Amino acid sequence: MAENDPRANDPRSEESKSKDLISRGDHTPTPFGKAVFFLARAADPFLQYSILAHGLGTGLLHRVGIRTLPAGLPAHTGISLIDGLELSPYRLVLLGMAVGSAVKQNIWVTLLSGEPMATHNSLAVGAFNTVFNSLSTYAFLIRATSASMESDFPQPALLVGGALYVTGILTELVAEIQRKRFKADPKNKGKIYTGGLWQFARHINYGGYTLWRAGYALVGGGWGLGALVGAFFFWDFSQRAVPVLSEYCEKRYSNDWKKFTEQTKYRLIPGVY
């Protein structure tokens, strides 16, 4: 491998590298790839709105006998931009979650992430997030799976799911901002960040992502879908992402990483894992 090859900064095995979409230790600029990611995530709220407001794709569901919810009465907030969407309060919450996830991830890709992002990875990650957002949206629209089958608003699933979503997405964002500020200081070059939210879990950003994904699914498809999606991401992070990132940190930071693991017992979610 050439001396100027950025992959030389990643001491992990090739197997671990193949499981990671991020090139650790590589800071090669990839403006086009990041622009693709930005646009893919920015387009998602428009897709979710088309599903929620106009029933995009529900015609296919009706053809196979799947019943969907009626549109419901539009919300009246007194804010023309919001009221002009003509969505019911519950649907507004789901759309807000799509917008929030897109904004959070685009803040990350433009301001917080220093690693390169290849175009194919940008498309894959963008599509992955859109699929899970759409899963929650369609689960809400389908009568058999919707979390909104009660007349009262807000429903328990909305309250609990909303709390998980806000807690998770803010945890992920704040943790990444804290780490970025630490890494931006030249005095901290080559050091591992162990302060802020990271003192509560070694991969607290992944834990935050797991929480808000579970909350989003809970708001759309109820307790069953929320538990299923939360379990999926918990499994993926604990079995794939955390081990491959831990290998990188162990080999790059050596004793500092060992000390961090001794001080911070939890990997993803404080008090849980």
Rank of each mutant, 00 (worst) to 15 (best):
V229A: 01
F232M: 07
Y193L: 01
L81V: 11
G126R: 13
R252E: 00
I66Y: 08
A71T: 07
D44Y: 06
V229H: 00
Y266P: 03
T167N: 11
N129Q: 11
N9E: 09
G190I: 15
L87S: 00
T145N: 12
A157Q: 13
L60S: 08
R143D: 05
V242G: 04
S148P: 06
L69T: 15
E262C: 10
T264W: 11
T261H: 09
T264F: 08
S13Y: 12
V160C: 00
D83L: 06
V125Q: 11
S238L: 13
L111W: 15
F232T: 06
A201S: 06
D185G: 03
A75T: 13
K191T: 14
A201Q: 06
E172C: 03
V109L: 12
V93W: 03
N121S: 12
F153H: 04
A147V: 02
G100Y: 07
H27S: 02
G271L: 09
R202H: 01
R7P: 00
A118W: 13
T77P: 08
V229P: 05
A163F: 15
W257V: 04
E14D: 06
A42S: 07
A35P: 10
H76V: 10
K259I: 05
L94F: 04
S134D: 03
L211A: 02
T261Q: 13
A144Q: 13
K183C: 01
L95K: 02
W212E: 00
S254E: 11
N9L: 10
R12M: 04
M149T: 12
Y253N: 04
L52H: 08
S50Q: 07
A163K: 14
A35L: 14
P243L: 08
A139K: 03
Y209A: 02
G196W: 05
G33C: 15
W223C: 04
T264P: 13
F32H: 06
G114K: 15
D26V: 08
A8H: 09
I66S: 03
R181G: 00
A2W: 15
L87G: 01
P31F: 07
M1W: 02
L87I: 13
E172H: 03
G25R: 12
K34I: 12
